[in-house]
Design a protein around this nucleic acid. Structure first.
Length: 507
RNA sequence: GGUCCGUUCGUCUAGGGGUUAGGACACCACCCUUUCACGGUGGAGACACGGGUUCGAUUCCCGUACGGACUACCA
């Protein structure tokens, strides 16, 4: 029997989460829920210099909006806390010491300046990739080259130091990746990475391994950018004596920019005409706001549906998968290997699908705050049927309001194109006649339609002669839903008043 | 440069040793409709290249090309 599924999403609070990060969180969440496991949020704030105020709150809110709710995390708590690495600071030292004592890591006293100097020298000597490794460490300032007394003296004098892992010379590191299969790397290509910084905090690599072990993480599902450092992490598990408890790895393909090349980044902001963030992010330094999917009017489930399909698919022809359906269908085996270019148009399409599939009553509820915000007066009872007509021709809730403003107030302008083309000298008569004909009906869509058709027949007019004219008089627009539905909703009084107004304003 | 990962229509992808290589978005045409959408029907559009293995490779193997990630006391 395998161990219980426990996965974590481990962002660093250095800014807003972008959609790639959200997708990683989503896959972790879907996997956990599908397996009946636990989804954990852990904040990786080992780099205090990069800490951005508000970033952690942003992450929590973004996940909440997306419906990706952690079972354990800094907000929720849990049995394996704390869930912020800065709060776990005290726990890392002993493992670092253990590695040093077992000759698997060593003190390094080289300053940042010395290292930079070293790299520049190497570059000049046409060695573009200088590494602190099994060869170069012999000529550096560390506990391998210094005598025991010298090291102790430096330590006693509180000289700053980092701790580096002592990568073995020529060994093969093998590990299995759920998405990519077996991966083999020779340790000669690895460098002696710093695992403990001079500021007293572990680096990501060390903290990540220790925390995953202590939190009993069963699967590490993260972006492909971590693949190159995975062998280091495997080595760390081995050195710490935890290889048996090592999680299974799954490295996700990247989300790529739609234009050109490379992975989508936070810096792409709104540059490409679509948001890269789940919710608005106000940069505390510049005061600028980068837009988010929530504020653009996306349904959270359209957003997660779209995201899930960027790199994964259920193997069926169905594409609309609300969150619970995603959970039911999800498996890591069906995640692809190749990076996926982001497609903003398809994203809009997903939202349209959810808009059309949402019940009119529900849509009406969602529309109320939008209308209130725009100070548009409305009749609550009419809202559901208005939504029913408008949702077929909009991508977003807000767009419904824009397109259907005439449901809420009489037009002040009349579409010029339609006027020029259709509003001929007999137009006022037609409209006047129709007003009268309509007034003899009960103002249901059906009876209005019948009255309209009877009028056409009696006067030998085509639909195209009368329809657009009446439409533009009542709505100001040349297009939209069925005219009879519109008139039925507006009611006799309003329709007549609008016709009167149009007759006054139009030639 | 080095290491690692990848490559099916423009995009997201299904598939897999023998298929008319399937679907979706976008695009085009037609139908429906007073109009705009929705919807429907149809169209154009892909296995990067070269070697193997095989009766047969888009599918398996090896190269090449191209793309990407990583290459910090950042995560």
């Amino acid at each position: 029997m395998s161990k219980p599924v426990r996965v974590r999403f481990a962002p660093s609070p250095t800014g807003p989460l972008h959609i790639g990060g959200v997708r990683t969180a989503l896959y972790n969440y879907l996997f956990a829920k599908k397996q009946g496991g636990t989804f954990i949020l852990r904040i990786e704030d080992t780099d205090q210099t990069r800490y951005i105020k508000g970033a952690e709150e942003y992450i929590q809110e973004a996940l909440k909006w997306s419906g990706i709710v952690p079972d354990e995390g800094p907000e929720k708590g849990g049995d394996y806390g704390p869930y912020r690495q800065s709060d776990r600071k005290a726990g890392y030292g002993k493992f670092v010491q253990q590695l040093i004592d077992e000759d698997k890591a060593y003190y390094a006293f080289d300053s940042a300046e010395e290292l930079t100097e070293m790299r520049e020298q190497a570059k000049k000597a046409k060695m573009p990739n200088w590494q602190y490794n099994s060869i170069t460490r012999n000529s550096m300032k560390n506990s391998l080259t210094l005598s025991k007394d010298e090291v102790q003296a430096k330590l006693d004098a509180n000289e700053p130091y980092a701790v580096r892992i002592k990568i073995p010379r020529n060994e093969e590191v093998r590990f299995h990746d759920t998405i990519r299969g077996w991966i083999v790397v020779n340790t000669s290509n690895l460098d002696d990475k710093v695992i403990f910084k001079s500021d007293g905090m572990p680096t990501y690599h060390m903290a990540n391994v220790i925390d995953d072990y202590n939190m009993k993480i069963s699967h590490v599902i993260r972006g492909e950018e971590w693949l190159p450092s995975a062998p280091l992490h495997v080595l760390l598990y081995r050195f710490l004596g935890w290889e048996d408890a090592m999680p299974e790895f799954a490295h996700l393909p990247l989300i790529l920019k739609p234009d050109g090349n490379g992975k989508l980044s936070k810096r792409d902001g709104d540059r490409l005409g679509f948001p890269v963030f789940p919710i608005n992010w106000k940069n505390p330094e510049t005061g600028e706001t980068a837009s988010g999917y929530r504020e653009q009017g996306y349904f959270p489930e359209a957003f997660t549906n779209m995201l899930a399909f960027l790199g994964w698919n259920p193997g069926s022809d169905q594409e609309i998968y609300p969150l619970q359906d995603l959970i039911d269908a999800f498996s890591l085996e069906r995640v692809g290997k190749a990076g996926a270019k982001f497609d903003a148009k398809k994203t809009v399409w997903f939202n349209e699908q959810y808009l059309k599939n949402t019940e009119n009553k529900k849509l009406a509820e969602l529309l109320v705050p939008v209308l209130k915000e725009q100070e548009i007066e409305f009749n609550t009872a009419q809202l559901p049927s208005i939504c029913g007509l408008l949702k077929e021709r909009a991508s977003f809730l807000t767009e419904m309001v824009q397109n259907g403003l005439y449901f809420f107030k009489a037009p002040n302008e009349y579409d010029e194109k339609t006027i020029n083309k259709k509003w001929k000298e007999n137009a006022p008569h037609i409209v006047e006649d129709l007003k009268a004909a309509f007034s003899r009906t009960d103002y249901t869509a059906q009876s209005l339609k019948e009255a309209f058709e009877t009028y056409l027949a009696q006067n030998e007019l085509s639909f195209g002669k009368a329809g657009p004219v009446l439409r533009v008089a009542i709505t100001g627009s040349g297009m939209g839903p069925s005219l009879f539905d519109i008139c039925a909703i507006l009611g006799q009084k309003e329709v007549e008043s609008r016709i009167n107004k149009a007759l006054k304003e139009l030639p």
